[in-house]
Design a protein around this nucleic acid. Structure first.
Length: 569
RNA sequence: UGCCCCUUAGCUCAACUGGCAGAGCGUCUGACUCUGAAUCAGAAGGUUCCAGGUUCGAAACCUGGAGGGGCAACCA
């Protein structure tokens, strides 16, 4: 299960979910609207790692292609040479595949530069675009404000010949960055700001990770995106809500360039998740400022981070399916995601005993030196799988500190002075004595075991309420356990007081490292093996884990109704 | 302040397009249990943002308003 490159499983072809986009695509098919099969695309800019927000878009775009027998392309929207890198292309491809999807075509907007340039000449030729030689500030000023119309700049009425001449010279690199830009000749008084002669191409003498230095006239998003969609024969161009206003220029350009049956843009709400941030800009800051160990830090909401943490693509897909897609801003509770993760792992992974905070227990009436191998089922009774393993039982054990209280409240079902509990797959034991150090800390429990209860039950029929996990003090293995928690301590990390930003909302305890003890059966398991540590949570051995230095990541905790009880007081 | 979008249970979404407002998650009970997990059963939770209007009938249609969000990068 150390699989990190290929997908762990292909995504299922059918989803029962029907959202407004799927309704629309279904209608396209019935109406024969585009004269071609539904075709979508996932169009990331290779300037960062993919995260949960992208996962939603990926599941949508690829899901529709699968469900309707259409196609979905992977297209890199790499029109900005300043920010993009091949390392991001590689990580994106890997992540999409890992999520269980395979694209039909792999395309790059940067491969369309020549074609887009031809479109630009066509627009100029038809009087629909012009070269503007104002500087950035002048252009901004000329665009007006949301309440006042813009005014035409001095170059708006250049002749077609002059525009064409300038454009050609822009292309061959005659001008410095910013000397000229190509603008659509739309409407400077348009109530939609996007339509006030948007910039189409700008000069950038920069190294592009794919085009090198051979190109210096780069298309902007509005110019590149819709036309790229049209080139690829996309039918439905799905994007997030903030591009709503851009749809007007999208349609305008497709019409002016002259595409028949052009693709149509439809917007849906981007994903927001409680206690985390989902924006490349913010995630990049977390990485650059060292708040996390990298893009694949297991606390990151990136696909790489979730993968390293141990979340399976199935869980991510199930989550995306259950949250659906709609047109209103959506902030999802992490509980929804955690449920999807547990639900995916529950029937799948073996149980194992691991003590996170070891507290020594000595069974005073248990023979010294004796080792009993207890047969333990690796899956619960409601699971079809029935594997077992042996867990060594000895006179000295460790239990979790949380499972002992010297002065317990009424409903505490675990170990306490004079109380009897069951050791999972072991005997019933009773706490007889508490040993403390000079500081008054409990350092050892002296207990007795009932030799007649090896089955886990008492022959006399007496009941114990609690069952706790344990490990042999002498036969268990030391291990490092990394407990990951939410990265931020407030649901909306951006909702911080004036003057501070989301960084101030970071949860200082998002990573807690424990030094625990685990049953020896896991010693030779491959890196990347997932388990449920009984009564604790789901874990995966980290890529740095070795037989001599075991390291586990907590994927997600188990639901804990006792913790809720304690919280209630 | 101009244009655009959104508003249904705590959260995310449904409601076959005008016909008894539902589901998943969460919460709370209970059953079961050698995981305080899982599973199972049940419950609570709604002025469908508000006010008018149309209609036999409105979550849906119309008008007005409120609240939230987007747009004035040579980012995407």
């Amino acid at each position: 299960m150390s699989d990190t490159t290929a997908s762990e499983s292909a995504a299922p072809a059918a989803s029962p979910r029907r959202d407004f986009i799927r309704e629309m695509v279904a209608d396209d098919v019935v109406a024969g609207r585009f004269g071609r099969a539904p075709s979508t695309r996932f169009p990331p800019e290779p300037n960062g790692f993919l995260h949960m927000g992208h996962a939603k878009s990926i599941c949508l775009n690829f899901g529709i292609a699968q469900e309707f027998g259409g196609t979905c392309n992977l297209r890199f929207d790499d029109t900005n040479p300043f920010t993009e890198d091949v390392k991001y292309v590689e990580s994106i491809k890997r992540d999409v595949q890992w999520l269980g999807f395979q694209w039909d075509g792999e395309y790059y907007a940067s491969d369309y530069f020549e074609q887009l340039y031809e479109f630009a000449e066509r627009l100029v030729h038809n009087g629909r675009a012009y070269v503007d030689s104002q500087n950035e500030d002048e252009i901004r000023a000329g665009r007006g404000t949301v309440t006042s119309a813009g005014v035409a700049g001095p170059h708006r009425n250049r002749s077609v010949e002059e525009n064409l001449d300038l454009l050609r010279r822009m292309r061959v690199g005659e001008f410095a960055d910013g000397a000229h830009v190509l603008r659509a000749k739309a409407n400077l008084a348009h109530p939609n700001m996007i339509m006030r002669d948007p910039l189409l191409m700008r000069i950038r003498h920069a190294h592009h990770y794919r085009r090198g230095n051979d190109w210096c006239l780069y298309p902007l998003y509005d110019f590149a995106h819709g036309l790229s969609d049209a080139i690829e024969g996309i039918t439905r161009s799905l994007c997030t809500l903030e591009f709503k206003d851009n749809r007007e220029i999208y349609d305008w350009l497709l019409h002016e360039v002259g595409f028949d049956n052009p693709p149509r843009q439809t917007e849906f709400a981007r994903l927001e998740l409680d206690y985390t941030v989902l924006s490349k800009r913010k995630l990049l800051r977390l990485v650059n400022e060292g708040h996390v160990s990298g893009w694949d830090d297991p606390r990151m909401p990136t696909i790489a981070g979730l993968r390293r943490r141990g979340v399976r693509p199935e869980a991510i897909r199930a989550f995306c399916d259950v949250i659906g897609v709609a047109r209103k801003d959506a902030r999802v509770e992490i509980a929804t995601f955690e449920h999807a993760i547990r639900d995916d792992l529950n029937t799948l992974v073996p149980r194992v005993l691991c003590v996170l905070q070891p507290l020594k227990v000595v069974l005073t009436n248990y023979p010294e030196g004796q080792v009993e191998q207890m047969e333990a089922s690796s899956y619960p009774p409601d699971n079809a799988r029935s594997e077992t393993r042996l867990v060594p039982f000895t006179r000295e054990l460790f239990v979790d500190r949380d499972d002992f209280m010297e002065d317990p409240p009424k409903k505490f079902f675990r170990l306490a002075p004079g109380k009897e509990v069951r050791l999972r797959f072991g005997y019933l034991i009773t706490c007889q004595d508490v040993v403390k150090n000079d500081a008054g800390d409990v350092i050892e429990l002296r207990c007795t075991y009932d030799p007649a209860t090896r089955s886990g039950n008492a022959p006399d029929g007496r009941k114990v309420q609690g069952t706790i996990h344990w490990v042999s003090a002498t036969e268990s293995l030391p291990c490092e356990v990394r407990l990951y928690d939410r990265l931020f301590s407030q649901a909306d990390p951006d909702a911080v007081s004036e003057g501070s930003d989301f960084i101030s909302a970071l949860n200082p305890e998002s990573l807690v490292v424990m030094h625990g003890r685990i049953e020896p059966s896991v010693a030779s398991d491959a890196v990347g093996t997932r388990y449920q540590f009984e009564r604790t949570g789901y874990f995966m051995s980290d890529e740095v884990s070795t037989a001599n230095a075991l390291v586990f990541n907590r994927i997600v905790s188990l639901r804990d109704s006792w913790a809720k009880e304690v919280k209630k007081g």
